[in-house]
Design a protein around this nucleic acid. Structure first.
Length: 562
RNA sequence: GGCCCGUUGGUCAAGCGGUCAAGACGCUAGCCUCUCACGCUGGAAACAUGGGUUCGAUUCCCGUACGGGUCACCA
């Protein structure tokens, strides 16, 4: 077989050589140890949690090492491409702190455009580059055209599937398939010429020299050392439309673009042998690989399953909708990614997560189950560390889209809203009342008359005469300039005068000696003022509400008691 | 079924030949407390399994079971 002639026949228009490509895309000049990583999505939908995971690793590793992160769009499957998906992907990633230094980035118009010297960054635009290497492989007798059509292949598969139903003889099936595939290797130059003359489409297949009996020693940065069988499948390099498959594009692009660390989900592990073979054929230096464990969910039978796009909590936009701050999600991702992250966080409560020394060795080898309990706990902690101003900014950002009515109230008086959000914040032991923006209204809505409701919250167990007496006395003694202690002393005085215990210890020692305790007295006031059985410190609440509004509410309750 | 990867409490996990087997979430008893939210002190709860190796295995080796991934002109 004259491979040079075959190459010319197959790729008559390709005049450049791999050497030309190397010259055009020289190695990156980066400091020692700098990592070059990438996010390489196919624009088929939204970012999901399982995708944010390895991307965060890529981002941390790159930026922590003084390297860089770039974005490459793997749009090699025209059939599955969703218009606008790439833009959406970039936008949501940006919310989660993933900033790209290079690649397909949004321009001022919000459209994906190339930034950087190693483009194009959309694989559909790189066909000429792939073809240079494809031609070279043909020339070297390491790749060959296959004219078996997709349909013929499908029919073959159908037969196999039917057999599979009758008796699951996987081995026989694999063997028959392999035999069928091997037939593709037998062709003559005349066959090729005839097909080409007839305009028949073809795919380019690798001519595999692998022997599955032989094992390949590989090191994965998270999985460690392992042995995998060599690849013996003549997998497709170029599809009939001339666009490469993932495997081929991965090898060419990651080499040309200078990727030092290929970070991807562990579902890629089974095809690693293919990639290693390709790098060898192409004479490329093999990058370091990191196969990240999958995020799991529980299915209806209680089994773990890979978190897939349809699952609750998969779509990152779901988190926004539910009211999770991006900072919360990032924090949760970090706790899952590095087992010592939480410990670090306890010691460094106020540092940004990017200060954490991310460590590959501390990554989980097995997958982990998505846990909303943990997420919610993280959420409360993260938000409790934020300033009232930060909370206000993020909260209003959320309500703007998801709760316009509440938003209008918050925006009408930022100072008022911020003073509410400041309750119990800033100290060593901050309150943790909410973790989601969607929970805030329930927590602080009573500060707004529009959300304050009174009647249905008064328990029957309250003695109306006592309630009335407490409120009247409280109003009479209230002085807005009192400090908290003085304020509470007055409440205690009222309690005693009505036969309630002023001291909780005394009450607990002998509950029968009193009508109730100062806790009950406080509760009367609390219900009147907040409409709720539980609320933050009443003294503070009253001060934020102001005397006028406080009294109006007390009066409103008195009216219903009359 | 083949091939890979994995298996410490319900969940996430420390551990790396000798530990009363950390910690966090959740659950729970109590304390603190004007309610709540914090905080604090406790509690229940785990090394899948069988063989080795060893004075000694959660830790090393082999098998078994279970779980996951994958086997496309999809990525």
């Amino acid at each position: 077989m004259d491979y040079n002639r075959l190459a010319e026949l197959l790729f008559p228009d390709v005049t450049e050589t791999p050497a030309d490509m190397e010259a055009k895309y020289p190695s990156r000049q980066l400091p020692e140890g700098a990592k070059v990583t990438r996010f390489a999505p196919s624009p088929t939908g939204f970012v999901h949690f399982g995708g944010l995971f390895p991307t965060t690793v890529a981002e941390r590793l790159a930026h922590q090492s003084g390297g860089m992160l770039y974005l490459r769009i793997e749009d090699t499957d025209a059939k599955r491409e969703v218009p606008g998906a790439a833009e959406g992907l970039i936008r949501t990633l940006a919310r989660y702190g993933i900033q790209f230094d290079e690649g397909a980035i949004l321009n001022e118009q919000g459209v994906v455009a190339d930034h950087g010297a190693y483009g194009p960054y959309k694989q559909s635009l790189r066909a000429p580059i792939y073809h240079v290497y494809a031609k070279q492989l043909v020339r070297e007798g390491r790749a060959y055209p296959c004219f078996t059509t997709e349909q013929e292949l499908e029919e073959l598969q159908q037969v196999n599937k039917k057999e599979e139903l009758k008796n699951t003889d996987w081995e026989a099936q694999a063997q028959s398939k392999r035999a069928e595939m091997l037939k593709n290797r037998e062709f003559t130059m005349e066959d090729v010429e005839a097909h080409l003359a007839a305009g028949d489409p073809f795919v380019l297949r690798i001519l595999s020299d692998g022997d599955p009996e032989k094992k390949l020693k590989v090191t994965d940065l998270v999985k460690g050392n392992m042995e995998i069988p060599e690849n013996d499948e003549d997998f497709v390099l170029l599809k009939s439309d001339g666009i490469p498959t993932y495997h081929f594009a991965h090898a060419v692009d990651d080499h040309l673009m200078g990727t030092t660390h290929v970070i991807r989900g562990e579902e890629w592990l089974p095809s690693l042998a293919k990639h290693l073979q390709l790098f060898r054929y192409l004479g490329f230096k093999v990058p370091k690989y990191m196969h990240i464990a999958q995020i799991m969910r529980l299915d209806e039978n209680g089994n773990k399953k890979k978190l897939s796009k349809r699952d609750m909590g998969a779509n990152m936009d779901d988190y926004t909708r539910m009211g999770y701050s991006a900072r919360v999600v990032c924090e949760y991702v970090m706790t899952l990614l590095n087992s010592n992250y939480e410990e670090w966080r306890m010691q460094n409560p106020d540092k940004p997560y990017t200060d954490f020394p991310f460590n590959i060795k501390k990554m989980s080898v097995s997958g982990c189950l998505f846990d909303f309990n943990k997420l919610n706990d993280v959420a409360k902690n993260v938000i409790s560390r934020m300033s009232a101003e930060e909370v206000y900014a993020e909260l209003t950002d959320w309500t703007k889209d998801y709760d316009p009515d509440f938003h209008a109230l918050l925006a009408a008086d930022p100072a008022y809203a911020t003073s509410i959000l400041a309750i119990g914040r800033g100290g060593k032991k901050p309150r943790k009342d909410f973790g989601l923006w969607s929970e805030v209204k329930d927590y602080m809505g009573f500060f707004y008359d529009a959300y304050f409701t009174l009647l249905d919250t008064i328990p029957d167990t309250f003695d109306k005469q006592d309630v009335k007496a407490v409120i009247e006395q409280f109003k009479a003694s209230y002085d807005e300039s009192d400090d908290m202690n003085t304020w509470f002393e007055k409440v205690k005085t009222i309690a005693s005068s009505l036969g309630f215990a002023a001291d909780m210890k005394a009450y607990k020692a002998d509950p029968t000696a009193f009508k109730g305790s100062v806790a009950d007295v406080s509760m009367f006031l609390r219900v009147a003022v907040t409409g709720k059985m539980n609320a933050p410190d009443l003294y503070t609440v009253m001060h934020i509400l102001g005397k006028e509004r406080t009294f109006a509410r007390l009066d409103a309750l008195l009216t219903t008691l009359a």
